[in-house]
Design a protein around this nucleic acid. Structure first.
Lengths: 198, 198
DNA sequence: GTCTATATGCAGATAGAC
DNA sequence: GTCTATCTGCATATAGAC
């Protein structure tokens, strides 16, 4: 970027910088324990200045989730482009917890743990967080419709989300990721059986 | 109790009263958002006075968890006494999420949501919370050893915990308990298949 | 746009009268 | 044992100099 930035652009860029800096922080500490001091340190932006870019902590959460949604939808589009069959694509999804197992053992599922935290008495924030699930669920539904036309794609997608959340939850409870591979094999085997029955 | 209580007894009783009063509060609000003001209101004990019975918030958590462990172990002993086969007993366990589905949709799993909250950056509190899982896991292991001697009871118990946590997590995300019965049927069918294969 | 200083409130925890 | 008043610190949020 050689030309001088106009003010609006610079603000947007700094805002984006903050969002990306604290994405991991939100995952590692959770929302309620993530303070403005933490945010300032992680982003390098002075504490009081964060409010120039976001009017409240809630708005920060919304911005990070929006960023995640964007990242996720790019990832899913890439999978759609790269992988030929819905079966392969769904298996790419189940692979997430294998690739991320070390983090899951330490911090849980980034979506599930956030929902668990906000879902009790922060309904507005919970609603924001839930959108992370919607994007995966809709994509899975689409894949199951292709894989098994005529079957209840909504139910199959939900069932798969349940499996993944269950693994993440128990791996986090015990801080032990050694069970991940075996459990994902079971899911993939279930997918193969479903596909073969078609 | 007709005889005058000695001081020690009265203290223990009031302590127990507080614990039982806030068990639900902890479930509904989570640990970090449950304040001493909340605790005082729920128990009817004046705010500053809570410290006469507990020296810190951490000690309150430990006491509530200890109470839950005691309740759980009584419940499991009752199941052992009432139900004749390990298969029936395990199904009694899966029935929990059916009976509690309305609460799960609102507040998540009392054990899983607490672990998700404390597990990120409060390792000491997480360790206290984890004991709730241990008691169920050990009991399930015992049941699977009886049901399927020679098979990996630890793995089977863990797999079942994963299913239950997955259901609770997704039911909480969507605030919709309509999927519980069907998903529990799938688990129970799996148990029947396992038992029949013996 | 950047940053320091500060307002305001509530959290966990304590002191001491009764 | 009971309860009020309060300490201390950090949280979110804001004002205003530069």
């Amino acid at each position: 970027m050689v030309a001088p930035m106009v003010a609006r652009e610079k603000t947007a860029q700094q805002r984006q910088h903050i969002i990306e800096s604290i994405d991991e922080l939100l995952y590692h500490k959770g929302f309620n324990l993530m303070s403005f001091t933490d945010i300032a340190r992680a982003s390098g932006v002075p504490r009081g200045n964060i409010y120039y870019y976001f009017k409240s902590k809630e708005e920060i959460l919304a911005a990070v989730i929006e960023y995640r949604l964007d990242q996720t939808s790019r990832m899913l589009a890439q999978w759609d482009a790269d992988l030929d069959s819905p079966q392969e694509r769904i298996k790419r999804f189940t692979q997430i917890v294998v690739n991320e197992k070390a983090n899951v053992a330490k911090y849980g599922c980034p979506m599930g743990s956030l929902n668990a935290e906000l879902g009790k008495v922060q309904p507005k924030l919970k609603k924001i967080s839930k959108t992370q699930f919607d994007i995966f669920k809709n994509w899975l539904k689409k894949q199951f419709k292709l894989l098994l036309p005529g079957q209840d794609a909504e139910m199959l997608a939900t069932h798969l989300l349940i499996q993944m959340q269950g693994i993440a939850s128990i791996v986090h409870v015990y801080g032990d990721d050694s069970l991940v591979d075996g459990e994902v094999d079971v899911i993939n085997h279930w997918l193969d059986m479903l596909a073969a029955s078609q």
